[in-house]
Amino acid sequence: MAVKPMKRKKRETLVAWSFLSIWVIGFLVFTMIPLFTSLYYSMSEVILDGEGIKVSFVWFENYKQVFSSPEGFNFLKSVSDFAIEIIFKVPIITVFAIIIAVMLNQKIKGRGFFRAIYFLPVIIASGPVINQLIYQGVATIPIIEEMGILSFINSTFTETLARPISNIFSELIVILWFSGVQILLFIAALQKIDKYTYEAAMIDGAGPWESFWKITIPALKSMVLVSVVFTIINLATFSENAAILHIKNNMFALETGFGFSSAIAWLYFIVLVIILGIFFLIFKLFNRERGRR
């Protein structure tokens, strides 16, 4: 009798790993090894010729080049633009998604119809399509230009800040297009709230405003972090993002090549981690503040 459970456990482990094996193989071949190779490339000079590639280790030469060459500067500029833009875009998208989710969660007629509309951008928002929209000028709200908001921004902020901020205003509609999945996440979280909680609060004399802040918002808290991470990654890997286009374009550029591209890809990743870290920290601080109250 004592042998049987042992055997069973062993068998189960084997079965489990058989289920996992495809992913594990894929992870090693297509992610883990490429990841280390990429790190190696980023510290190497990679030369492509007819026969294949020649790799010679050069320590941090590529990284030095990023900070000292025109290609590097162009990349750094688009990364800093991206970082500034994302710091503005993430709160815009998150707050917008929460507002829409709260509205869509009410007992209103045509809820399905509205949900379908608000999710539509997820379906059609590819890089080329969004490019078309921005190019055709349907991505902005005409009032913004008419009221001279853009020129106001350009005259008040320094150039480094003004460019990304005016970008945000001129692409306001497109930014909202990136909130489809987040709206669904928040709706899902809202539907988990027991409606008796609201009733109990009402009996205790809480108005709609108080219940919104004391019940609804706390219930969405955990989802905010998920939504923020999704938003950042989604924007960071969006195919028309200038920073990642640099990585691709430099791959086959004459002066730079695979080594340089790998180096800027890693720098980009580091920036991404820092941005994620900042938002994570804000989230933590905000939570502690609430907890104390």
């Binding site: 996992l20 090894i33 990841l35 190779t37 990654i233 695979f258 890809a265």
Partner: peptide, 30 residues
């Protein structure tokens, strides 16, 4: 299933999400 090192696997899965494709696309290309 009970798997030893499940937390590590979850960590790696999360990593594949957080690390942008750009980082490993060049070796994949090669």
């Amino acid at each position: 299933f009970k798997i030893r090192g499940k937390a590590i696997i979850f960590g790696l899965i999360l990593m594949t999400y957080l690390v942008p494709q750009q980082v490993y696309m060049i070796p994949r290309f090669v």
